[in-house]
Design a protein around this nucleic acid. Structure first.
Length: 415
DNA sequence: TCTGGGGTCCTAGGACCC
DNA sequence: TCTGGGGTCCTAGGACCC
């Protein structure tokens, strides 16, 4: 038995928290590079702008509606997400942080008759402590709790799917594509067999579902019938990969800026590995051509001399890989560095033949940058100007994590 | 002209081993 | 002419999630 707590239009809600003047204005938040819409206020949803739509396709429509746009500000969203999760953890010891804006809470031992009241309690606690509106769905499995949250968002903010009739009604009114675990491909495949709703789906025989949709589909099938298959994960499973990648403002036509970009990606990846107390044993560099070029991406992997998160080692290998991968004729619009074969820092295998770099150097670098801002101390290879860097023209302040960007109230506000 | 970034899991097929 | 059965590991591709 689970409650799913899902923040309403999370990124938009974060922006509005510090811009109460936008409470009733249509607001949308853009992806990295200001490319797509990734979060919409209810007013933007109402004018029919789909989530994920490329900005250039809906720009006029948004302008006519008087919408305000923001570049994504993950520093702000990450900080507010932490506050939401901490509030939920103060309400229950059995919580799973599922994504930046969602968490599951176990309802173990709580009678069905109290579900709704508990949902209301969680909802008001988060709004009181953080100021972010959330919807809560409660049900016997995670997949049903997801459905309940969809219902909650259309209505009162809380929906407990505790009665069989109520579950049956919901399944009848839900398209397969709106079920957690059924994506566009599976949904299209099901439609070919005249399966359109979640109700149609659960009437299919298990054997057929497993054959066509693998065990993943079978799990969804059972979860919709109230058989729990996906447990609460109180601790996140160990990470297997870590990536840093970005699109460029234009095309990379010469090697030097690409060297600079990939070095700074490797540096960001190193910092992230160190934050998670992980080392990588393998590194993969990949280059991506424009979406409609007909070309496929290129990648190359190489092993590090020891498991490490040292920026210097990561950049060195990245550049070695780049020199083998680089081809002036390849139209590179995006690149990334991926860390593979991750291991916890504390169980590092020593080498007989060579000494890994002293971790104290990176510790000092991280400490300085934590205090004075990211990139204050960096390697020369990362460059300075970053002219290749993508668009991010509409970004709000980091209100909660930078002294010099705190919101100002009263006289002189709105600078 | 312009379409993000970061993850996981499953399956099929090939290589290899005994 | 006739050539087994069982297992593991790896990779690429496909599907999903937020």
């Amino acid at each position: 038995m689970f409650a799913l707590i899902d923040c309403d239009s999370f990124y938009v809600s974060c922006e509005r928290l510090f811009r109460p003047d936008l409470k009733t204005t249509p607001v949308a938040v853009l992806s990295n590079n200001d490319g797509c819409i990734v979060s919409r206020s209810s007013e933007v949803k109402a004018i029919g702008v789909p989530n994920g739509s490329p900005l250039f396709k809906v720009r006029d429509q948004l302008r006519r509606a008087g919408a305000v746009l923001f570049s994504s500000n993950y520093t702000l969203y990450g900080d507010l997400s932490g506050r939401v999760m901490a509030t939920l953890q103060s309400q229950s010891s059995e919580t799973e942080v599922y994504s930046i804006d969602e968490a599951f809470v176990s309802l173990h031992g709580l009678p069905r008759s109290s579900w709704e009241e508990y949902g209301l309690q969680l909802r008001s606690a988060v709004y009181r402590e953080v100021g972010i509106p959330v919807s809560v769905g409660l049900a016997s499995t995670k997949t049903l709790a997801k459905l309940a949250t969809r219902v909650a968002k259309r209505g009162e903010g809380v929906c407990a799917l505790s009665h069989p009739d109520c579950i049956a009604d919901t399944l009848r009114q839900t398209d397969t594509a709106d079920v957690w675990g059924i994506g566009p491909r599976f949904s299209r495949k099901l439609a070919l067999h005249s399966v359109f709703t979640a109700e149609d789906f659960i009437s299919l025989p298990e054997r057929w579902v497993q054959q066509e949709l693998t065990v993943v589909g079978l799990r969804t099938h059972r979860e919709l019938r109230g058989i729990p298959c996906i447990p609460l994960e109180r601790a996140p499973p160990p990470r297997r990969t870590m990536v840093h990648s970005r699109s460029f403002r234009g095309r990379m036509t010469s090697l030097e800026p690409l060297q600079e970009a990939t070095a700074s990606f490797a540096a960001r990846l190193g910092a992230k590995l160190r934050r998670h107390e992980l080392n990588a044993s393998w590194l993969r560099l990949f280059l991506v051509p424009p979406r409609n070029s007909g070309l496929s991406g290129r990648g190359l992997s190489g092993s590090l001399p020891w498991p490490t998160a040292d920026t210097r080692a990561l950049i060195q290998l990245t550049h070695r890989l780049l020199s083998r991968l680089w081809d002036a004729g390849f139209p590179c619009t995006k690149a990334g560095v991926m860390a593979l074969e991750l291991s916890p820092r504390k169980v590092m295998q020593q080498s007989l033949l060579s000494q890994p770099p002293d971790p104290a150097v990176m510790a000092v670098l991280d400490a300085v940058n934590a205090r004075l801002g990211r990139g204050t101390v960096r390697l020369a290879a990362e460059g300075v100007e970053h002219e290749w860097s993508g668009k991010r023209d509409l970004c709000s302040q980091r209100y909660t994590t930078r002294w010099d960007e705190l919101p100002v109230i009263g006289e002189g506000a709105g600078r």
